[in-house]
């Protein structure tokens, strides 16, 4: 598969180099990120874990190129990021569906903006919607769907243009436990993870360990990296790994780390 930026199926690597970020507002200054260094290998799944308000969303916005760092730089596919990085799909904390478009219209938004061939895009949109069980809801408006259905539609939208990078900001944070577990499995089924590099933000330790190859734990604000964990279960993963000793071992280790640093 050839993606617009010319990278092949080997995927896109992300390097976050010496990033500092502060917000200035009316003279007062809030330091949010302090000296973040992070490498995500191509086609790997990296989770960011950290307490609420520590700067996780800010880090994601920086990687998307939507914010400019106060200092440091971000390399995507070996190139310094300037402006927005558009070969990525973003799933925001809330669904951010446009209320005046139908579900299908929302999923097709990337194709509309990027002027991709209409017929092929519609075909793909319908397939994606079917995979998450939203077939039959194509012509519904977002306000006619439940929270879980809306977030699934926004996941389909992020995947429509086959981005090399997926950025997900606590995508399941607002969902009930049952829906959340279902969507964690859906991610693999949809191909949201497979040939892509994923940056996934969560405050749920088990979710992070279940999904990731790499778990990055952030401190309280201003966030710096406390520690990184490698998770070596093979893909695709099933719920069975949640019962393994190794899974619990990593989860406990992260929990212990949170306890030591006074986050838990």
């Amino acid at each position: 598969m050839q993606s617009p930026d010319g990278n092949d199926s080997n995927g896109v690597g992300i390097s976050v180099c010496a990033i500092n970020m502060a917000f200035e507002r009316r003279g007062s200054r809030v330091d949010v990120l302090s000296d973040i260094n992070l490498d995500i290998a191509p086609r790997k799944f990296c989770s960011i874990l950290g307490p609420s308000g520590c700067g996780k969303s800010t880090l994601l916005m920086l990687v998307a190129g939507l914010y400019q760092p106060s200092s440091g730089r971000i390399l995507v596919n070996g190139q310094t990021l300037k402006g927005c990085y558009s070969d990525c799909g973003i799933v925001f904390q809330t669904d951010v569906l446009l209320p005046w478009l139908s579900v299908l219209g929302n999923v097709l938004l990337p194709a509309d903006v990027k002027k991709l061939p209409k017929a092929a895009a519609t075909e793909r949109a319908r397939t994606l919607l079917e995979q998450v069980g939203l077939n039959g809801f194509e012509t519904h408006y977002p306000n006619e769907l439940s929270g879980g259905m809306r977030q699934r539609a926004s996941l389909c939208r992020a995947l429509l243009h086959e981005p090399a990078v997926m950025l997900m900001d606590e995508p399941f944070g607002a969902l009930d436990a049952l829906t959340r577990e279902r969507m964690q499995s859906d991610l693999t089924k949809l191909g949201a993870t497979d040939p892509r590099t994923v940056l996934f933000i969560t405050h749920d330790i088990e979710e992070a360990v279940f999904l990731s190859d790499q778990v990055v734990v952030l401190s309280q604000r201003p966030a710096s990296i406390l520690r990184q964990f490698d998770v070596n279960f093979p893909h695709p993963r099933t719920s069975d790994i949640r019962r393994t000793q190794e899974f619990h071992h990593i989860v406990d280790e992260i929990r212990e780390l949170f306890r030591e640093t006074g986050i838990l």
């Binding site: 916005m61 558009s86 005046w100 903006v113």
Partner: peptide
């Protein structure tokens, strides 16, 4: 206009005119 909608459009590579016509004027 919710800022997330504008972020979404920018991340898709939308021009300021596209953002105005498709999102801001609509909302």
């Amino acid at each position: 206009t919710p800022p997330e909608m504008i972020h979404l459009m920018r991340s898709l590579g939308a021009s300021p005119l596209q953002i105005l016509l498709r999102v801001r004027l609509m909302s």
